[in-house]
Each structure stands twice: as structure tokens, then as C-alpha cells.
């Protein structure tokens, strides 16, 4: 048996385990398993709208997941994609609110740049603190998530509030200025294309450029980098900026492609899911794209399952947690199968 085949078997076993767990949970809440599964898959593949919905959710997951993966590659544990995503969304909103009358291309270019920088700076703060003073980035990135949410709340009551509205929402982006719709009758917007382009760029950057090489080296052995004259601080700063910037673009996409205005809850924890995406994707751009699409499908399917068979969509979260655990524990669980040491 080849090594790849053994690995494939172990993944298949994980899939079967998750499926059994799903069936168990559905039975536990007293629902019809057949109906639930029909609802799940029909919700993903049933119509062009549902397929499109998967990619609507995949776009921010890919972008934020790429960001987290870049950070992880350089040894920067970025837990703050959520906050960085919101800062990107704020920056894009501020751009169209403050510069009315810009043509679409200029607005989008400026807005994406602003979103990238806002998210990037938000990650750069803990990045610089780590590079300069060696302060743990884990706590700092989490704390900055709360600050970012607080800033969004304050801005929606003040500078970015739509005066005509009673609720805390920003002015709406004018029709035709946001990301183009890709498919009529669906919510699919060109954010997914931007995400895929970013995945290619990140792959190229990480594996083909000398800067990307230095980032990876810093992530794997900072001590050797120091001895070889590769700056660990520079690596951390570049990777945190890029990492936060990618999450920031995810935030831009949610406003420009989907909501067309800033509201309090634009992200259903995309920034946290992004960590799982990076983990499952092995911190590789291609893996991130696949993992993000998978998780997006799981979420879309779960919601459909809830509608069709009245199964709580929380089951999807449980399954996702279980899958992550199983994948992380894979090498131990399947020790005998994978015994061929690498």
C-alpha cells in the first residue's frame, strides 16, 4: 500500500466518522435522517442560487484564511482575522462615504487599498509589538478583535451613521458601484474572483519570491535566520501586514459585494473560521481554497437542513469541531495504518 493510499484511507475514515456523528445528532434531536440529508445536499447543489451561496460564503473565508495561513507560515499566530476583517470593512465604507462621486473603478481600487491597509495595520500593531518587544501576539490579536468591534459600533452611531435611518447603519453604497454580480438571480459577486486571484498571488509570493522564502525560514527557525543575517523582525512585520491586509480585503468584499453598507454583524465569525480554514488547508493557498469552500458548503447545507427538516444548524458547528479534532488527531488515531514513518 502506498503512503498516499494509506493517507486517503485515514481521511475517508474521518469522513465516515463525521457522517455517523451527524446521523447520531440528527436522531438525537428527533428528526428524519433521510429528509435532513436530502435537505443538506439539496441546499448545496439544488439550484444555481444554492451553489452560488456556497461561493458567496467561501470568498471571505478564502481571503481571511489566506491571511491566517501567511501569518502561521512565518510563526505569527494571528487569531485576529475577525477584527482585521471589520477594519477592512470600515475602511471601504469610509472611502465611499467620504469620496462620493468617484467612478466605480477608482472607488474599488481605492477602497480595496484602504481595506488592505486598515486590516494590515490592525495586524501590524501586534506584529510590531512582537518583533520589537517579543510580546505574545496571541493575546494582542484577540484583544484587537474586541477593539475593532467597538470601533465599528461607535462609528455606526457617529461618523458613518446614515442620518436618515433610525438604526445604526452606514449610508448605502450607490447602485452599480460595488462588486459586479456574476450570476443573475443569485448573490454571487466578483469577490470570489478576487479571492482566487489573491490565492494565486499568495502562493507565488510564499513559494517563489525571496521575501516569501525568508518569511518561511523565519517561521521554521528564527534562531538560524538570526545567525544567517535574515531579519526576523522584518519577516514578522511583512507577514503581519500582509496577513491583516488579506483579512481586510475580505471585509471590503462583504460590503462591496454583499451588504452594500456597514452594519454591526457583517461577519458570522469568518475571522475565527479562517483559523480553521488555514489549519485544515495546511497553510497552503490551494488547501485554503479547498478548506474554505468545504466549510462554506457545510454551513450553507446546514442552514438548508434546518429549513427542510427542522434540524438545528448548530449541528454543523459540532460536526466542524469534530472534523477539526479528528484531522488534528489523525496521525495518532491512525498510528498503525500510517506507521510508515515519514
Amino acid at each position: 500500500m502506498s503512503k498516499q493510499f494509506r493517507a486517503a484511507i485515514s481521511y475517508a475514515a474521518i469522513a465516515v466518522c463525521s457522517l455517523l456523528l451527524a446521523i447520531l445528532l440528527i436522531l438525537l434531536v428527533g428528526c428524519d435522517v433521510g429528509k435532513a440529508f436530502y435537505g443538506f445536499f439539496n441546499g448545496i447543489l439544488g439550484s444555481s442560487y444554492s451553489v452560488a451561496e456556497v461561493f458567496v460564503k467561501a470568498a471571505p473565508l478564502i481571503l481571511a484564511g489566506l491571511g491566517v495561513a501567511v501569518a502561521f507560515k512565518s510563526g505569527f499566530t494571528n487569531i485576529g482575522a475577525e477584527g482585521q476583517l471589520y477594519m477592512g470593512a470600515v475602511a471601504f465604507t469610509a472611502t465611499y462615504v467620504l469620496c462620493p462621486g468617484l467612478p466605480k473603478a477608482a472607488l474599488l481600487a481605492l477602497g480595496i487599498l484602504a481595506g488592505f491597509l486598515a486590516g494590515g495595520v490592525w495586524a501590524l500593531i501586534p506584529g510590531a509589538l512582537k518583533a520589537r518587544f517579543g510580546i505574545s501576539e496571541v493575546i494582542n490579536t484577540i484583544m484587537l478583535n474586541y477593539i475593532a468591534l467597538g470601533i465599528v459600533g461607535i462609528l455606526l452611531q457617529t461618523a458613518l451613521k446614515d442620518r436618515a435611518q433610525y438604526f445604526p447603519v452606514s449610508p448605502t453604497l450607490d447602485d452599480g458601484l460595488g462588486f459586479s454580480r456574476l450570476l443573475k438571480g443569485t448573490r454571487l459577486h466578483s469577490g470570489i474572483l478576487i479571492a482566487l486571484v489573491c490565492a494565486v498571488i499568495v502562493y507565488f509570493f510564499i513559494f517563489k519570491t525571496s521575501m516569501g522564502f525568508r518569511l518561511r525560514a523565519v517561521g521554521m527557525n528564527p534562531r538560524a535566520c538570526k545567525c544567517m543575517g535574515i531579519s526576523v523582525s522584518a519577516g514578522l512585520i511583512v507577514s503581519s501586514l500582509l496577513s491583516g491586509g488579506l483579512a481586510g480585503i475580505a471585509g471590503v468584499g462583504e460590503i462591496a459585494g454583499l451588504h452594500h453598507r456597514l452594519i454591526g454583524g457583517i461577519s458570522p465569525s469568518y475571522g475565527y473560521l479562517a483559523i480553521i480554514v488555514a489549519l485544515l488547508g495546511g497553510n497552503h493557498p490551494l488547501g485554503v481554497v479547498i478548506a474554505a469552500t468545504g466549510i462554506a458548503a457545510l454551513q450553507v447545507g446546514a442552514l438548508a437542513m434546518q429549513r427542510a427538516a427542522n434540524v438545528p444548524s448548530a449541528i454543523a458547528s459540532i460536526i466542524m469541531g469534530a472534523v477539526v479534532l479528528l484531522i488534528l488527531a489523525r496521525k495518532t488515531l491512525f498510528k498503525r495504518l500510517l506507521r510508515e514513518e515519514d
Binding site: 525571496s210 527557525n221 538560524a224 545567525c227
Partner: peptide, 30 residues
């Protein structure tokens, strides 16, 4: 600890020294 990045391959360990060298990396590309 000091001389190698153990999880990188042979070529990459050479690059630890040459990653800014014009002969092996031009315009930022390896």
C-alpha cells in the same frame, strides 16, 4: 539550531545565504 532550517530541503538551506544574491534571486524572485 544556528546553521540549518531542518524542515527545509537542501536547496532552501543553501538559499539561507543566497536569498538576496543577484545570481540566485533577481527582482525578488528566486
Amino acid at each position: 539550531e544556528d546553521g540549518l532550517v531542518l524542515d527545509m530541503d537542501l536547496a532552501e538551506n543553501l538559499l539561507l545565504k543566497f536569498n538576496r544574491d543577484k545570481r540566485y534571486a533577481s527582482r525578488g524572485l528566486i
